[in-house]
């Protein structure tokens, strides 16, 4: 049996090689504290420590004699949940980053460069330089353009939170209505170039998700923040289903399925590799269906409800009508 070590074993090795230098540096460490520092469970820490304590090098005798092995203060470990390495072998420092590890973090940093919390360009530049220099090979060529655009608004939000104050802004919903909102910010989410503010809406007394590009006239509010992260749960999903949602049955080309994301409500058990498939969408407002149908023009057809199908047609017709009044463009040669 020469199976490739499962991914789990590789990750455990990475943890062991990171844990040893950390423990050596600390001299004495609490299992709980180590678990928190590395964001792993206490059981994983104990398992790793037990393995380290019996590991070492074959040594001159090839017999793994005690002097060739790590050792720990077993009493402190068993009785007090404390880790003290009493004998070390070979390892002093953590390993360098692989080219792909460095690249993954570097691309993540590029993406974040628009965030007000990123500590300014000096912090980012310094971190990126340090990372590139501490990889065991040239980082892979992977880059993500800065998420841009939202930084001004997010800076206002961050400053308000820093001052312990709520945030006020005009918000335009997908339904087309606009009103002033007063919120206690909880978290800022993003997906690619879209940014979202997750916040406690003070008038609605509920957690709401706001698209940053639909927010305008953003100002620091006058009221102190009363609902903080931890007081309420912020769901991971950006769009939580609501009773007022519109459910629509559509026929879509399977190639656009990955791009419909959280709109998708139901998909048949078996999806063909090519061709069209009937799926259910869940939308905050029926108008949204026209927009999606046009974004994937020709690849999505509304089936049910029939009235909505008619609405999509007249929506497209009125959009086309607007072009009948536009004088022919002068730059045909483009």
């Amino acid at each position: 049996m020469a199976a490739r070590a499962p991914q789990g074993a590789r990750d455990k090795l990475a943890f062991l090689l990171a844990l040893v230098p950390y423990l050596l540096d600390r001299e004495r460490a609490d299992v709980a504290e180590v678990a928190e520092h590395f964001s792993v469970s206490e059981a994983e820490v104990r398992q790793a420590v037990r393995l380290i304590a019996v590991s070492g090098v074959p040594g001159e005798t090839d017999a793994y004699l005690p002097g060739d092995l790590f050792d720990i203060d077993w009493g402190a470990f068993e009785d007090d949940d404390e880790i003290v390495i009493t004998h070390r072998v070979v390892i002093n420092e953590p390993p360098r980053f692989s080219s792909r590890e460095a690249a993954a973090l570097l691309a993540g940093l590029q993406y974040l460069s628009a965030l007000p919390s990123a500590g300014g360009h000096e912090v980012l530049d310094s971190v990126m330089t340090k990372l590139s220099r501490s990889a065991s090979a040239e980082p892979s060529q992977l880059a993500v353009q800065s998420a841009g655009d939202a930084d001004r608004i997010l800076a206002t939000v961050a400053a308000a939170v820093d001052a312990g104050l709520s945030v006020e802004f005009d918000y335009r919903t997908a339904r087309g209505t606009s009103e002033r909102r007063v919120v206690d910010p909880l978290r800022v989410d993003s997906v690619d170039s879209d940014w979202y503010l997750r916040a406690w809406d003070r008038r609605r007394e509920a957690v709401r998700t706001f698209r940053v590009d639909r927010m305008s006239a953003v100002t620091q509010g006058s009221q102190a923040i009363s609902t903080r992260p931890g007081d309420v749960a912020v769901p991971d999903a950006l769009f939580s289903p609501s009773d007022q949602d519109t459910c629509v049955t559509v026929l879509v080309d399977v190639q656009i399925l990955p791009f419909l994301g959280e709109y998708v409500d139901s998909v048949p058990d078996e999806v063909p590799a090519a061709g069209r498939v009937e799926i259910g969408l869940r939308l905050a407002h029926p108008d949204v269906v026209s927009r999606i149908a046009a974004r994937f023009a020709g690849l999505m057809e509304v089936v049910d409800p029939v009235e909505l199908r008619d609405e999509v047609r007249s929506w497209a017709q009125s959009a086309l009508d607007a072009y009948e009044t536009v004088p022919p463009s002068s730059d045909r040669a483009d």
């Binding site: 990475a14 943890f15 090689l17 990171a18 844990l19 230098p21 950390y22 540096d25 600390r26 520092h37 590395f38 953590p94 390993p95 360098r96 980053f97 590890e101 691309a107 993540g108 993406y111 974040l112 965030l115 919390s117 993500v144 998420a147 939000v157 961050a158 939170v161 820093d162 910010p185 909880l186 978290r187 800022v188 989410d189 993003s190 997906v191 690619d192 992260p229 991971d236």
Partner: peptide, 22 residues
Amino acid sequence: LKLRSLGAHTAQTPISYAPRVS
């Protein structure tokens, strides 16, 4: 993991972020 091995502390930001590149 390797970075945490260096033992440095992580500063808290005033508001938390959940960024994602899909």
